[in-house]
Amino acid sequence: MTAQLHIVSGKGGTGKTTVAAALALALAHDGRRVLLVEVEGRGGISQVFDVAPFGDEETHVARGLGGGEVRGLAIDPKAALLEYLQMFYKLGRAGGLLEKFGAIDFATTIAPGMRDVLVIGKVYEVVRRDEHHARRGFQQYDAVVLDAPPTGRIGKFLAVNRELSGLAKVGPIKKQADSIMRMLTSGRSRVHLVAVAEEMPVQETIDATAELRGEGLPMGSIIVNQERGALLGKRSRALLQSPDFDAEPLSADLADGGLRVGPTLVDGLVESGRRLDERLSLEERERARLSSLDLPIVRLPALPDGMDAGGLRQLAADLHRQGMQ
């Protein structure tokens, strides 16, 4: 059996890398092996786990939630190209020749889009490993989680092989590009989009979903990240927003609680309450827009203490509990 591929994208700033890391932990249950792949980070994922930056060897990162293992890999386009040439064309000296003539540099840094082709090519190599590869010493995985480019570029990133197939028309490149598109559009792959319940990220999520569906790429879940806790109930929110809000009982409670009551304290608290109310109303409105996408919605809390290893495990447990396993 080849691996399930989970592609995680989202607008910049929504926490997509953190969610990808938490998803890898959530999927690594019951002895399952999961590979977490970073394609364009500066070691962002490894910081979340507090380990050394991932390299182009698949190395142990963490134990999964239920005893599985998460390994990490950072794909370097240049290494991926040389490996690909060696694997499929058995290029020894000729590979060096390409390097010498700047063809490798051209392909990995200058030619627009080639990076994407190479990165996805490497993901394909990892995902399609089966028992046959395992016997030859390659690590086989139950799932591969890809921390993919942000929503603004995800459609083009994933569909780059369709473009390439059209350019190549015939030959080995076309064959490889077509196989990769088949993998990405098969039932074994899905794209999850991370959003926060704000206007721009939600709009990008809606636009990206339309684009990805248009490319025939199967959608997974929408993950609404960094949700504020429901600290304020509907009733207190309504009272705070009413034009004749009476701060007297609030002041009395604060005095009884032992605080020195003054306008800074009372007005400050009322102001933060009102801001939170506005924020929650906005989140409700934006969540309603997301539900129109007709995809499973998974919700993750804003972690009060910021992101650390413990917080990551909490998010992983939340994902697992909501069916991402």
């Binding site: 600290l231 304020l232 109930g233 009733r235 207190s236 009272l239 009476d246 009982p249 609030l250 409670d253 604060l254 009884d256 609680g257 608290l269 009322v270 933060s272 309450g273 939170l276």
Partner: peptide, 13 residues
């Protein structure tokens, strides 16, 4: 109207 639990919630916020 406004209850102590509401005040506590605001402090938490």
């Amino acid at each position: 109207g406004w209850k102590p639990a509401d005040t506590a919630a605001l402090l938490q916020v």
